[in-house]
């Protein structure tokens, strides 16, 4: 089974993140950039499938030069190689443009399965799997908490607010996963040492047959017009207990319709 895993480098969600004042894009320069957390679950799922069914796992990343660090980290977990789409025309590309570029790159790899995280912690759009499936003509199995493969038949438990749905499809397919699907492995020392020797194929837009005016700021269908800081948390209500604290608490909770 040939599997492509999408890996995105994002600013560490554990630290403060900002948008840039000049173009409303994510400030990546001053952030500690890491692998999107959900993508580690996608890598783990791909590796488990490879261990069970054989085949090949390729990491696919679209991003600037420094995304190489995240590609190496991903490779240290065990995938066989990576494709890095790197082009000066790419900054500013929106979801539609990104899906166009990734679909073109996936097309050159002809995988049976594309696995990605259900969302990235920077933009949290949750749309990439659907867009890619549409462009590639693949089945879309999104939001998986469990994935089973029998031959060309895929079965997914799709996580919902209330529980889960069982969805099946045949390969080729795009599967997006939540962090409930597995527990990602730590890179072993051998994996770390091997990562640098694994092939990373750098592709430009020209290599993929995508024209520069279909991506970047100019080629994007959507534009972020403005942004503002999240409002500071309000102080809340402090109940001083002078014998009636319990009543005051319940009054507050019922006024907020919690009870």
């Amino acid at each position: 089974m040939k599997i492509v895993v999408l890996v995105k480098q994002v600013p560490d969600s554990g630290a403060e993140r900002n948008l840039r004042a000049d173009d409303n894009s994510v400030d990546r320069a001053s952030a500690n950039n890491v692998i999107n957390e959900m993508d580690e679950y996608a890598i783990e799922e791909a590796l488990r499938l490879q261990e069970a069914h054989g085949g090949e796992v390729t990491v696919l990343t679209m991003g600037p030069d420094r995304a190489t660090e995240s590609i190496r980290k991903a490779l240290s977990m065990g995938p066989d190689g990576a494709v890095h789409v790197l082009d000066d025309a790419l900054p500013g590309t929106d979801y539609l443009g990104t899906s166009r570029v990734l679909a073109a790159a996936i097309g050159t790899l002809s995988p049976d399965l594309v696995i990605c995280g259900a969302e990235a912690t920077d933009a949290r759009g949750q749309v990439m799997a659907h867009m890619l499936a549409e462009r590639l003509g693949f089945a879309a199995l999104t939001g998986a908490r469990k994935l089973t493969v029998e031959g060309a038949q895929l079965t997914v438990e799709r996580q919902t607010e209330e529980g889960y749905e069982v969805v099946t499809a045949a390969t080729p397919a795009v599967v997006s996963v939540w962090d409930t699907i597995n527990e990602p492995r730590y890179p072993s020392f051998k994996g770390i040492m091997a990562a640098k020797k694994k092939p990373v194929d750098t592709k430009s837009l020209a290599d993929l047959g995508v024209s520069a005016d279909q991506v970047g700021w100019g080629g994007s269908a959507t534009t972020v017009l403005s942004h503002s800081k999240r409002p500071a948390r309000s102080a809340g209500v402090k109940v001083t207990d002078s014998g009636e604290g319990g009543v005051a608490l319940v009054d507050y909770l019922s006024s907020e319709k919690f009870v």
């Binding site: 890179p187 770390i192 990562a195």
Partner: peptide
């Protein structure tokens, strides 16, 4: 080296 740094990061996560 990059590998030593990656090792530190991985061990730190395990710890």
């Amino acid at each position: 080296t990059d590998e030593r740094r990656a090792l530190r990061e991985a061990v730190s996560a395990l710890g």
